[in-house]
Amino acid sequence: MANTEPLLLKVDRLSMAFSGLLAVDDVSFNAYNKNITAIIGPNGAGKTTVFNCLTGFYRPLSGIMLLYHGEKRFDLQRMKDFRIAQKAKVARTFQNIRLFPNMSVLENLVVAQHNALMRASWFTVGGLMGFRSYKNKEKEVIELAKYWLTRTDLVEYADLPAGNLSYGAQRKLEITRAMCMEPVLLCLDEPAAGLNPAESSDLCELLLFIKENHRVGILLIEHDMSVVMGISDYIVVLDYGKKIAEGPPESIRENPAVIAAYLGEEE
């Protein structure tokens, strides 16, 4: 089923080492548009390292990561972190929430459109003079933010500092901020960590909504198996930096190598 949509991301023989320790070892996988691809594995398997390589926070030791964006192709391994977000339109969230706590919820979302707003304000000069083009663009951005806030039920908190929100709301806001970048690839690093079951199912609904209604591929790192098995189309399993299995959820559930990695092998 994954093949019906165009290829979005091709990771080929990716390796990353920290002073001799191979954290990611020769990992290859593909991700497709309008698909949720989950990366799972026990603690320390190198999942977050893969994300950090994809988003440019780490420079990989070897391997290529290609992002297909219509006609265009981006070599992610050669790009700087903020360029990946700006040009290749890869958005991410963090394991420990990284919002701008003293700025209001709405401001957090408006900042996500920084580059578009910068261009519209003629790199501040036009904005200082109060050009109409900037004002219109700002309105547009606020409308986009409002759309996502309504979607995530955060509209009533729009003018409060983001740091005042509850933990679950902050998690949602971080995803909302990433979506306000209008990304083609959304990387979520343990979005369900610390959420209660109700919030978890809320999150699943949101992710399915994004998948259905927006042209975006989702990469998901998650430990909560009910989330992973419930919503992902394809699963990649890592252990000690190596890929040990991949396939649709049904096949992963029964894969002996995966069971061994999670539960230990039988003597």
Binding site: A85, Q86, F100, V111, R177
Partner: peptide, 19 residues
């Protein structure tokens, strides 16, 4: 806003494409 965002969290700034 980018200045204030930078004050709050530089890593997050990079992740949303602020230079």
């Amino acid at each position: 806003r980018a200045w204030e965002a930078l004050r709050e969290d530089e890593t997050a700034c990079r992740s949303i494409g602020i230079n």
